[in-house]
Design a protein around this nucleic acid. Structure first.
Lengths: 147, 147
DNA sequence: TTCCTACACGAGACTGACTCGCGACAGCGG
DNA sequence: CCGCTGTCGCGAGTCAGTCTCGTGTAGGAA
């Protein structure tokens, strides 16, 4: 599975004329090998264990690149880069994958979502929200191909 | 509506024996007055316009407090404090409101969610995920009342 | 009203995450 | 093997967020 994604990545690089560097490969391998949603610095640490000469900036640049190509996803945890929302009721977010803008959305059907039973996990659900990811109007208008 | 939430806040402070300071009130007003998901620094900026003597640390402290009391919600945007997710398929997240931990969840019914029509907004949905917020097992076990 | 105490506040230094600019270097196509 | 183009490593810079500590103030008691 890891292998398959490496090949996929290599192919994408070729298609877009991006050099397939050693660093890129190592960084992707490390990211795939790490479990639950690592930060860029955690990936860097993992990379540095075997390749101490790969710099932090390179790791940041390449994770960004990998996310743009859709080989990795971005996740965001609360705790850092935090924002505050004056709405505390159930509502949803449209998140632009290109410009990172977020706008609120109300939708009856999403509000009425059937919540899963998480008691087996010991998790007590208090509230929820759906994150719809895609491209906003503005970004679609300046329709450049994702670099 | 703003007034009502201020009263609600004042009442909560009283119940928990928290001083209802001028700063707290001003900060809440500012946060309610700002639109789409301001950062702590944006709130600070808005506050500073009329109250230049309110420090940044105070704004941070109080926003945190307001979120704990449930008067504001935390939202997180991609862009900062970013994490990378090796899964690019549709899956969902359990987010603990106390310790900010995030774990993956798979659920057939959530995967089959009826997505709303956002063409009127010019937004093109590519993927989505449901964020279930609540309390994880570990935090529920050290069941202290939320301060 | 005045006093008391616990908590909150302000200032500013500090930490750690992230970015930028630049000269050197390495894929890759020819 | 050569040259072009984009990437790399470095190190300094920026910015968000936190901590410490001495001072101030809300709110309850007298």
């Amino acid at each position: 599975m890891k292998h398959e994604r490496l090949r996929h990545f290599q192919q994408l690089c070729r298609e877009r004329g991006l050099p397939f560097t050693v660093q890129r490969r190592v960084i992707l391998e490390a990211a795939l090998g790490l479990g639950n949603h690592p930060t860029a610095d955690q990936v860097h640490e993992a990379v540095a264990a075997r390749h101490p000469d790969i710099s932090r900036a390179t790791v940041y640049r390449n994770l960004e690149q990998l996310a743009r190509l859709g080989i990795l996803a971005k996740a965001c945890h609360p705790g850092r880069g935090l924002r505050y929302d004056r709405r505390t009721d159930v509502h949803h977010h449209l998140v632009c994958l290109r410009c990172d803008d977020v706008v609120d959305l109300d939708d009856e059907r999403l509000n009425a979502l059937p919540l899963p039973d998480t008691t087996a996990l010991g998790f007590e659900i208090r509230t929820f929200g759906v994150e719809l990811r895609g491209f906003c109007r503005r970004c679609r208008e300046k329709e450049e191909e994702p670099r």
